[in-house]
Amino acid sequence: MEKSLYLHVGHGKTGSSYIQSILSTHRDKLKEDLSILYPVLESDRSSEGKISSGNGSIFLQNPGDVLHVCRGNEDLSTLYSSEFLFALERKWLNRKNILSLKEHYDNIKILLFVRNPDEMLSSSYQQAVKRSGYTGTIAEYIEKFQFYRSVEVFIKKSLENPELELTVYNYSLCKKRISKVISEWMGSKNTYSVPYPVVNRSLTFAELVFQQEVNKVFGKSGDLFSDLVCEELPDLKADTILPPASSWRAFIERNKGTISEINGLIPASQALQLEENLVQDLEPQLSLNVDQIRIIARSMLPKLMRV
């Protein structure tokens, strides 16, 4: 039986938490049906539909040590899923590690999702507010948004190593069938899915503004509000946050060469689409509802009383 090392590397804001919910929920089935081991951390709650960073931190502890990577299950394939594998590619994506792993695994399969720049910018900005304590405007954020250069570098480094089998999907085009995509990539004839419709959603405009104000007072503090509101109200429709037209035009000029370079490296069917003009299709939600307010009271007030 062939043994494969499966590495789902993200990148960020491309459904990774949902994919990790699928993998952790069905880890016994993956082992039984596909002979794939999916190691999990004790703290992992992705099988409950909670926000997750996946299991990539296990792999990154020693990516060149086969016995560590296969977790002592030398007869099985192994699967790791984490945005860290993209963000921290320098820790593992090198000839020494790859050649070491290839001595044990017959195949090293990498799955990368990319995302259209307008969607990626909005989601990345919201994530910076939620998880990194960012308090600036999207016009300020876009000035330092150099993300697609990292995508270009990752793809080129992967393609330079013939031992790696890189698969790239445009998340903007396949987000509604992500369960089928991940199942097919693992070689399954069955589609593995979970009952959680949205994991780690973006915020409404009112939630975003509130979280920024919390960040201004307490610093990085997504655990006080945004994490909970996203987990407890997953079906609430998020708002798309768009930059001013002038900021978007400047972004296009800075990035059109990089986007073109990426599109030349991936299948034409998955090409990134760089929209010339952005249109706000729905009015942003400017107020918090009763459920959101209850989460604020339940989460924040007891902590404030202890300060």
Rank of each mutant, 00 (worst) to 15 (best):
P117L: 07
E32K: 15
E275R: 00
V214W: 00
H11F: 07
P234S: 07
P243F: 02
P234E: 06
S21E: 07
D28Q: 13
P234H: 04
D75Y: 11
G133L: 10
A245W: 08
Y134S: 09
E143Y: 04
K176M: 07
L166N: 06
V66F: 06
I178M: 13
N62M: 06
N107Q: 12
A268G: 06
Y192Q: 09
G72L: 15
F205K: 04
G12V: 02
K102Y: 09
S124Q: 07
E48I: 08
L111N: 01
S172T: 11
S287K: 09
K303W: 07
L233W: 13
T240F: 13
K180D: 10
L233P: 06
H68Y: 13
L242H: 01
N289Q: 09
D28G: 08
A250L: 13
Y134G: 07
P244V: 06
R306H: 12
S221A: 14
V151P: 00
A271N: 05
H26G: 06
S46N: 10
K303C: 08
Y134M: 12
S122K: 02
A271Y: 04
R249N: 15
I19F: 01
K144N: 14
V181G: 03
L272M: 03
T78F: 04
L60R: 04
R95H: 14
S24F: 01
L121N: 01
S246M: 10
I241P: 00
S16G: 08
E213H: 11
S57V: 15
T25G: 09
S100R: 09
